[in-house]
């Protein structure tokens, strides 16, 4: 095992702390890795690399802070780095961030009391207006996929762009649309803020 030049504590203490604090989260990190890679062999590689990096950089972990989140962050960064290195990722980070953004829109809608707006309101005209207001490269993709039901591959072929670009544009377009519809519902007077947010969950804003 390599030792860190910036870690002045005796090695046994460091190993003891790592064993007691980091290793209990192995199962959790394996689940995170499974969600990221979707492949059993890749999951094992990713978990191994995550814990190797965590061990090497253990001196940067703040005792008493959330080790599980620290490890999950290392896992995600490692995954993104490995994907870039393997040159088979097209803006995976961006696509995942758009998914998180969609959850945040939902949290805001819930906080404003309009999370049931799709069931409660006739949003057809507002949706059409919002789609027309999108930049053309976003508008084309969301029309083809979400309105007309074409697959990513069909749209990629039609527009002569990579499938990854279709996904990136689509997810970004969806976020713009969700935000526009949320504004519409609030501006139309349907907001009724009354919901207490469960704290500390993905998508939840503090002080929303």
């Amino acid at each position: 095992m390599p030792s860190s030049s910036t870690d002045d504590s005796p090695r046994s203490d460091r190993d003891s702390a790592f064993t007691a604090t980091a290793l209990p989260h192995l199962s959790t990190i394996a689940r995170v890795a499974t969600a990221l890679t979707g492949d059993a062999a890749d999951t094992e590689d990713l978990v191994q690399e995550t814990f190797l990096r965590a061990y090497r950089h253990w001196h940067t972990f703040q005792p008493g802070s959330d080790c599980k989140s620290w490890l999950a962050t290392i896992c995600r960064h490692t995954f993104a780095e490995l994907r870039r290195r393997e040159n088979r990722s097209v803006a995976v980070d961006d696509q995942e961030l758009e998914s998180l953004a969609a959850a945040r829109v939902h949290s805001t809608a819930r906080a404003k009391g309009v999370d049931d707006m799709f069931a409660r309101l006739d949003l057809g005209p507002a949706i059409a207006k919002a789609i027309r207001a999108l930049e053309p490269h976003y508008r084309d993709v969301v029309l083809l996929v979400d309105v007309d039901g074409f697959s990513y591959e069909e749209v990629a072929s039609s527009l002569e762009i990579p499938v990854g670009t279709v996904r990136s544009r689509l997810y970004r377009a969806r976020r713009h649309l969700q935000e526009a519809l949320l504004d519409f519902a609030i501006d139309a007077g349907y907001a009724s803020p009354s919901y207490t947010l469960p704290p500390n969950h993905p998508g939840e804003r503090r002080n929303a």
């Binding site: 959790t28 999950a72 969950h201």
Partner: peptide
């Protein structure tokens, strides 16, 4: 489930709904 697992799942929201995740990911989610 804990927050780290929730975040990993939410990061796959659109790919999952669009049906473009692997079978392993799908079962996990």
């Amino acid at each position: 489930p804990d927050r780290a697992e929730c975040e990993a799942v939410v990061r796959q929201l659109w790919p999952f709904i669009d049906g473009v995740v692997s079978e392993t990911q799908r079962e996990f989610i």
